[in-house]
Design a protein around this nucleic acid. Structure first.
Lengths: 192, 192
DNA sequence: CCGGCGGTGCGGCATCTTGTCGCAGCACGG
DNA sequence: CCGTGCTGCGACAAGATGCCGCACCGCCGG
């Protein structure tokens, strides 16, 4: 991936075969064309799809070698789409684009066949690096799932540092009442 | 930072300067040496530290150019450590290693100066790719924090697919009562 | 064939947790 | 000096959870 700075323009991508035909799937009409254009300057061919159905149609006849897929789309889950794509097109590398907070879901997608995941907004370079670099650690199933309590607590801590310790603001962002946040903070952190 | 003066010959890492001196920080006595050895075969020098205090001491006198830091350690947070390291050693690239479920916290670390984050277990190749590749999208502050409710819901969904839809098993992993999980699942997914 | 085991759904009730008030205090800036 | 927004905290009703029980189902071995 270190030589990604010298991507050949034109039609040959020596050992970067995954980048020959890249399918960009996102229902965000502002973001998708931008990403597609940026990718087009660096890869072989790039096509776009605005949703799951369209993506499946394009994939069936065009047989992309790589896909960049948004996690949340109006007509279906990007994770499901990726699972179907890699099933139909063995060897296809798919990266999941995800907004903040869906990282766990994106990791799920990796276990279901996605190559990597990125948080949005992602630069074209980051996408390329993810596509051509090593696969994201699939997180073996032996990694225990954290308790709900723990997940909640970590997210609260995160937002709290975000707001610089402002309880009222954090409560607003978390969507709960200030008093409730106070009480949660007063409690002790979960053990496991 | 420090340029040609202190370079040890022997290994050549052309434009991979970050990999000259790599500090591996983890309190897991089984995992750390393995990672360190694997890295040593691919980079310049590699040293290890078993905790935050030790890492700070080593960093002060050795001035690493890169660091691989576990997020959770007995004597302190890896995120805090990274923040201090990048403050002291400008140009240092630090990747955070995180277990499942602390991804949000790891992203936090990225905002506080870390270069990238990886989920554990991570291969040495993945670590190198993260260190030499583009920086993880720092997730501008405009990305809204998801509501607590939403975070909870996504985590539940994740564990549910993990268990193949087994409610009892998912409840056990989530650390709540089966009846409560049933009720949560019966409710509708959160909007925002 | 039957009993044990583990899963599911659901009702009910005691108990814990939240939401929503209100009040008082403190800091900041017009 | 007063408005604004933060903080901590008490109180009480509304809501969620833990925990019991029951009925039912599918599976597997005795």
């Amino acid at each position: 991936m270190t030589d990604s700075s010298e991507l050949h323009a034109g039609s040959d991508f020596p050992r970067m075969l995954p980048l020959r035909r890249v399918l960009v799937v996102d229902d965000d009409e502002r973001f998708r064309p931008r990403l597609a254009r940026a990718l087009a300057r660096r890869c072989g061919e790039v096509r776009q799809a605005g949703g799951v159905q369209e993506a499946l149609a394009v994939a069936a006849e065009w047989q992309p070698t790589a896909a960049v897929v948004d996690l949340r789309m109006g007509d279906g889950s990007g994770a499901d789409l990726v699972a179907r794509l890699v099933a139909d097109l063995p060897g296809l590398r798919a990266v999941i684009l995800t907004g903040y907070g869906s990282i766990a879901t994106a990791l799920d997608a990796v276990r279901r066949g996605a190559w990597h995941y990125l948080s949005k907004p992602a630069t074209a370079d980051a996408v390329l690096a993810a596509l051509t670099g090593p696969r994201a650690a699939p997180l073996g199933d032996e990694t225990p799932a954290p308790s709900l309590e723990r997940v909640e607590w970590e997210h609260i801590q995160r937002v709290m540092t975000d707001t610089g310790g402002n309880v009222s603001e954090a409560a607003r962002r978390l969507g709960l009442h200030r008093r409730s946040l106070q009480r949660k903070l007063a409690r002790n952190p979960p053990a496991g």
